[in-house]
Every structure is written in C-alpha cells, then in structure tokens.
Amino acid sequence: MSLGAYLAVSAVLFASGLTCMMTKRHALGVLMGVELILNSACLNLIAFARYTSLGIDGQVFALFVIVIAAAEAAVALAIALNYYNNFLTVDVDRGDELKR
C-alpha cells in the first residue's frame, strides 16, 4: 500500500471531523469532531513514520497526540458538564453569552 492511500483516508477523517464541528450543535458532537480530526492527524503521523524517514519519531508524536486527545476529552467533558449546569443545555449555539 502506498502512503497516498493512508493520507486519503486521513483526509476523509479530517473532513468528516471538520463537518462534525461545523454542523453539530451538541457540544459533545463537536467534541467527537475534534476527536476525529486528532485521529486523522495520528494516522497521518504514523503513515509518515512508516513510509518516510520520519521513523520512530512519527509514532512518538502520534502517541503524544493520543494522550493529549484523552486529556482534552476529559477537560472538554468537564467543560460540557459545567456548560450544562449553567445553561441547562448542551447546545453550543446558546453559549454566546459573552457577546451580549
């Protein structure tokens, strides 16, 4: 298999994640989009690690990305819960209080 195939999969992942972020009004839906995007980055890094001279470094970065994604999910969930506590909804469109 070639590098390009993996990059194509990653592109699909990325675009789906972005779409998720653009269309989902549920806060956790947006979060899932973020996860998809991070996953696509991960896939990219590992593919480059496999097919180029990036070597083991790519996997190390991917590992860091995974860890960061987990941390980000925890914090984002906490934020979402707080958001829910304060707004009684998880609709991100209602979180425009700062604008008013």
Binding site: L28, M32, E35, A69, A70, A73, L77, A80, L81, Y84
Partner: peptide
C-alpha cells in the same frame, strides 16, 4: 485502550449526564 476504552466511554458517559 485510550480512545476507545477511555475517550469514547467518557463521551458516552457525558452524553448520558447531559
């Protein structure tokens, strides 16, 4: 382990909480 067993579970958990 991390994504599927951790992150997604947490997400679903969050869905249920909210």
């Amino acid at each position: 382990l991390v994504y599927l067993g951790g992150t997604v579970v947490i997400l679903v958990f969050g869905v249920m909480l909210t």
